[in-house]
Simulated assay, not measured.
Amino acid sequence: MNYTLHQLQIFLKITELKSITKASKALFLSQPAVSIQLKKFQNQFSIPLTEVIGRQLYVTEFGKEIAEAAEKILNEVEMINYKSLAFKGEVAGRLKISVVSTGKYVMPYFLSDFMKDNKGVDLVMDVTNKESVIKSLSENKVDFSLVSVVPEQLKLNCLELMENKLFLIGNGDTNISISASNDEIFEQYPLLYREEGSATRNAMEDFIASKDLPTRKKMELTSNEALKQAVIAGLGVTIMPLIGLKNELKNGDLKIIPFKGLPLITNWNLIWLKNKKLSPTAEAYLDFISSEKDRITAKNFEWHESY
């Protein structure tokens, strides 16, 4: 056997993505280069690692076992690198964070300075839906998660980072002549929803129910970005977080519609399992964010506080 770490990395990525094309893009390599390395790696085994049926690549049972071994080897090599940096007094290791979709407008600002100051830290940030965030946290696959509503079914530690404000939003041409206390807006314009289970949708539905507001035909979209574009296009109005609307409000593509009882205010929370033993890297990040969160909020989200 004379395989290289590079070949292990390529083979592992192929098994993860089930595609040479996708693996080449993920690794920033050409497709022929990935194919050549896979062939060289395969030549060291008498049993097939992969097979192509039709146009789909499949990993054989033997290939799956080799992939598991490759992952262990690469993790050990990574740990050697981290230990080398830690021995020199540097923070080194992997930091894993899962973030609800709207949190992508928040979390990078609370990571930037820490990552700049700690070159030995590798960041894995998964931006996904609320259900997946809670699942990854409950299965101990991440160090921290960012949510706007803290799940009650888990025993968690929680650190508030900043406010999350939800307003009634229409596009720049929405002409509202009614008073802020009038609910006719919900009769005049279709209401756009996030998908079921979304914290944004739950907050909006609770508000509508508490006010006994009438609603016209509803449309459902699976991300805040899609929701935002639908409102800009004039498909209707919605209640959504302010945090991702800075440029659209500034450009006049969207406007806040005053309405009694709004904004709804929650908090962006960094959460982690109560019984989790944090790694030195995660501990270092928690120390950083605990002491710097107010400075980061003031520096990057002053516009948010003005609404």
Rank of each mutant, 00 (worst) to 15 (best):
E90K: 13
T128N: 09
G244I: 01
T266S: 11
L154I: 07
G234W: 01
N75W: 02
I47A: 03
P108T: 06
L74V: 06
K293P: 11
L262H: 07
S30E: 11
L213H: 10
T222E: 14
T238C: 00
A233Y: 14
L38C: 07
H304D: 03
L8C: 03
S46Y: 08
F87Q: 10
P190C: 01
Q31W: 08
K88T: 04
M107K: 03
L12D: 03
L159A: 13
K104A: 08
L159N: 13
S181I: 11
V237I: 05
I271C: 03
P241K: 03
L270Q: 01
S132C: 06
F41S: 03
N81T: 13
F45P: 15
K250M: 12
I73T: 13
V34F: 13
Y109N: 06
T222P: 04
E305T: 12
F167Q: 04
P48W: 06
S290R: 15
D126M: 15
I97M: 05
I47H: 07
T238K: 00
E205T: 02
M219S: 15
E152Q: 10
R201M: 12
K104H: 13
K88S: 09
Y58L: 10
P263N: 04
S35N: 12
T238Q: 00
D253M: 07
G63P: 01
I176F: 05
F11W: 07
Y109A: 09
